[in-house]
Design a protein around this nucleic acid. Structure first.
Lengths: 337, 337
DNA sequence: ATGAAAGCGCTAACAT
DNA sequence: ATGTTAGCGCTTTCAT
């Protein structure tokens, strides 16, 4: 493998000059092509380990995702990578496999890789646990999807409660009162917040909560079919369904289709998150969509600031709004006076 | 940040001894807890940059995926990470964003990170292009999903043609003769191979290829609905559909459901790849499933051998078989004599 | 079993 | 603008 020393010998220049060239410093115009040629001849690429050792900056960012297949995290990682690349930064993505131990493993791994910062979508909700955990590491951590009261790191989230509130209010505005919700089994932050938004929207419009209309599904998918089917066995049936995320939205559409319930004729739907499959679905579902680009951009911005300053400025938390995608999945129900 | 030197001072031992401890060398039993304590007190983690610089081994593997959202690649990365972790290796995942330039970027990035090997699912098919490209890098590359005649690196693939042949033969065995195929627009290797398997199965059973039954869809999803709908406008309609991968399978099921075609009563289906959504689909689709664990395991095995030997042994290519998942998505059609 | 010291490839301070 | 050189944190050889 070629090193700067090799290039120095090849060009007759010094290692310092080559280093300057590599880092955009001042080099005589006539020397530039000479160096460039030597680089190409030797297929030289800089040794980032040596550079990182010297500068104490690795130009890498760790990213903790619950699963590579997680739609939210993979969109976020994808967008973040684009912004980071502009600053010569790259992502180390580590799967926590939905476990706290996996998260600790990831953090330890990042610590030894000396990443400059970490972006994380953690699975747990225990603020003090994370506060203590993160205090062990010297890199800044930017939290996504959920926040811990600005106590463990900067965070970028959306207003989950409001997004759900908006969605359910739209269904009510269209005349629906029998509105079911399909949410995850786990008591996770976003899941809960969106449930609260659902409840609050109902309450604010004087609609009592109907226990049978709260469907909790396992993200493995095994019980989705049965649980959604059960919504329609009683005489008191929902006329609309609010689904709290991509998985529940897709799977609910799938099941409704299979049960031969037409959307929106037989049942109305308001979903969450936008992803590839919704390009196929007819009619287009109404959706609350998270501004993934903005989330990534804000996150990267904060992260770069933290790396630069390295100060213990108070943690900031940015809360963004979701966007409402208008679809054709809600039927207007005549108001009964 | 704590260094070995700090630990040396703290424990009264030498840097060399601490290093040995860190690497599982011989250290007096009575010294072990002392070192361990110092590590915990300082939150010490090894500096992998320094280690990599010294040993010329980074214990990282680069992984090139077309998109983070790619189902095949994300399953593969996930499985590979598990095996690699057993050998203290970790994955650097880089998105090529479905472009050749992105792939080159990824390789250059990996070169400067001095990864020990690269796992890649490339998008192109030009053997000579990749042969030339990869010759520029000194790390071994293990190719997945497609192979280039053992000319650019070791590879792990499945027998795509045979898998498709098996699937279509099964449909024929059930009495179907009007079998459509939903494939991708792009002339990619796996896509083509599976198409060839389809054609060969038809040919071997004396069934002529019907042009209108070959549906080519864009992976963005925009034309899937229209293209599948078009299958049913003529008087000559298919009784079965073979879909060549996860995306086409899911979206075809989605569209059929929306068109109120029941599976298997109105139309039979044989799909490809297994993933989360199929846990929800009723009836369970027949599927050809790639052995992702075995693919990852074989790939990692080859990769570790390459790293160890560093010899220019001839490239090997491992071809695995897909597994057939029996479902309820095929109707038996009485044979007409 | 432990320690002293060289050196991996780079950057940056300093000298020219 | 270019060159010389120290040193980042680690492993490893060679002594002890």
């Amino acid at each position: 493998m070629a090193t700067i020393k090799d290039l120095a010998k090849l060009t007759g220049l010094s290692v310092a000059t080559i280093s300057k060239f590599m880092n955009g410093g001042n080099v005589l115009e006539k020397n530039r092509p000479i160096i460039q040629q030597a680089i190409e001849a030797t297929n030289y690429t800089i040794n980032e380990h040596a550079r990182a050792l010297k500068t104490n900056l690795s130009r890498t960012v760790g990213f903790i995702t619950p699963k590579f297949s997680d739609v939210y995290a993979s969109q976020l990682a994808s967008e973040a990578a684009v912004y980071l690349r502009e600053y010569k930064y790259s992502l180390f993505v580590y799967e926590s496999l939905n476990s706290l131990e996996g998260e600790v493993e990831a953090l330890d791994f990042f610590a030894s890789k000396k990443v400059d910062a970490v972006m994380a979508a953690f699975i747990g909700d225990d603020k003090r646990y994370y506060q203590q955990l993160l205090s062990k590491y010297r890199f800044p951590v930017i939290l996504f999807d959920k926040t811990f009261d600005n106590v463990a790191g900067d965070s970028v989230t959306i207003n989950n409660l409001k997004a759900a509130y908006t969605a359910v209010s739209k269904l009510i505005e269209y005349g629906h009162r029998d509105i079911a919700i399909v949410r995850g089994k786990e008591a996770h932050f976003t899941n809960n917040q969106r449930y609260l938004g659902y409840r609050q929207a109902l309450a604010d419009h004087g609609i009592p909560l109907h226990e049978d209309f709260v469907v909790e599904v396992d993200y493995s998918g095994i019980d989705v079919y049965e649980n959604i089917t059960r919504l329609f066995v009683n005489s008191h049936k929902p006329t609309a369904i609010f689904t709290v995320n991509y998985f529940t939205t897709v799977s609910t559409i799938m099941v409704l289709n299979q049960l031969d319930y037409s959307i929106p004729e037989d049942i109305s739907l308001f979903g969450f998150d936008n992803y590839d499959l919704f390009k196929i679905v007819k009619p287009k579902p109404w959706l609350m969509v998270q501004p993934m680009k903005a989330i990534a951009q804000e996150g990267v911005r904060m992260l770069l600031e933290r790396i630069k300053d390295h100060q213990h400025a108070p943690y900031r938390s940015v809360v963004l709004e979701s966007e409402m995608y208008v679809g054709g999945s809600i039927k207007r129900i005549p108001q009964v006076e």
